[in-house]
């Protein structure tokens, strides 16, 4: 830029920034407006105790939920519920990823392993995690272990199936290219099959994380003593209606947060897929 040119004024810069980000700003504005509208409708329905097929007579209002939220934030018991749920998710999901991803990679590479494991997996896969609750209680000595086991099962199958799918889509020409550059079996696995499958592995992890929360909450409601699912169910038994909504919102926020974490990890691990 020639030195004589004056730097653009703050006003022009702001205008340029606005033009560049117009689409995103619009989406954010609409998103915030929609959330406010949702809260407003919720507020009106509960304030006037609307009964129109569904009954809002006992549904807590947003303000009541907010009040119980501020109370809960100072209650170590509530925080402990959340912490315990997160711990269960962390252990169950991590185990599922640590076992599911390598197993999928190996099944995708070695036909015999695939032929042995796939039929068993196909039979077990459609069983919803909640149907495993009685079996899990019999299998594991402690309640805690059976809940983690159910969380593990919920996320394991999506992770396994997506990893397998990714392996089946690896472009054979890339394998050939690696071979005539001197790559042997192990290098081909590490340098071609694994990175080529990563996008599908991360799809599996995202889906698996969602199912992990579904399974966890179901298990906690049935057999737990702690955890955010138990908290929500207990609130119903104790007629703490505001706490029901609080528990639900907490579950939603935690689920959203954990899938954002996975998406972020995916972007870190796969920089070539940015944007």
């Amino acid at each position: 830029m020639p030195p004589s040119a004056t730097p653009p004024s703050f006003g022009t810069l702001a205008l340029r920034w606005y033009r560049l980000n117009q689409g995103r700003l619009r989406a954010t504005a609409i998103g915030i407006a929609a959330l406010i509208a949702f809260l407003l409708v919720w507020h009106l329905l509960t304030t006037y105790r609307v009964v129109f097929f569904v009954r809002f007579t006992n549904v807590p209002s947003p303000l009541a939920v907010y009040a119980s939220f501020t109370k809960a934030m100072h209650d170590p018991k509530f925080l402990m519920h959340i912490l315990l749920s997160c711990r269960r998710i962390f252990i169950g999901f991590s185990l599922a990823a640590i076992i599911g991803v390598p197993l999928g990679l190996i099944m995708g590479r070695f036909k015999l392993v695939h032929e042995i494991i796939f039929p068993v997996a196909e039979v077990l896969r459609p069983i919803p995690a909640i149907a495993w609750v009685p079996m899990a209680i019999m299998l594991w000595p402690t309640n805690e272990q059976s809940i983690v086991f159910i969380t593990f099962l919920g996320s394991f199958f999506p992770i396994l199936v997506n990893t397998l799918h990714g392996m089946s889509l690896v472009d054979p020409v890339l394998v050939r290219a690696a071979q005539c550059l001197g790559a042997r079996e192990r290098s081909i696995f590490r340098e071609v099959y694994f990175p080529a499958s990563l996008p599908h592995i991360f799809t599996g992890l995202t889906v698996g994380m969602g199912v992990a929360w579904v399974s966890l909450i179901a298990a906690e409601m049935i057999s737990g003593q702690y955890g955010i699912g138990y908290f929500t169910w207990e609130a119903y038994s104790l007629v703490q209606y505001a706490d029901i909504a609080l528990g639900m919102i907490a579950i939603g926020v935690l689920g959203l947060g954990s899938s954002l974490l996975i998406r972020g990890a995916g972007q870190l691990v796969m920089p070539w897929r940015a944007k």
């Binding site: 050939r176 005539c180 796969m270 070539w272």
Partner: peptide
Amino acid sequence: RGMVFQQYSLFPWK
């Protein structure tokens, strides 16, 4: 024996 393919076949992750 180096090989060049019609579909380029570069490793997208590299």
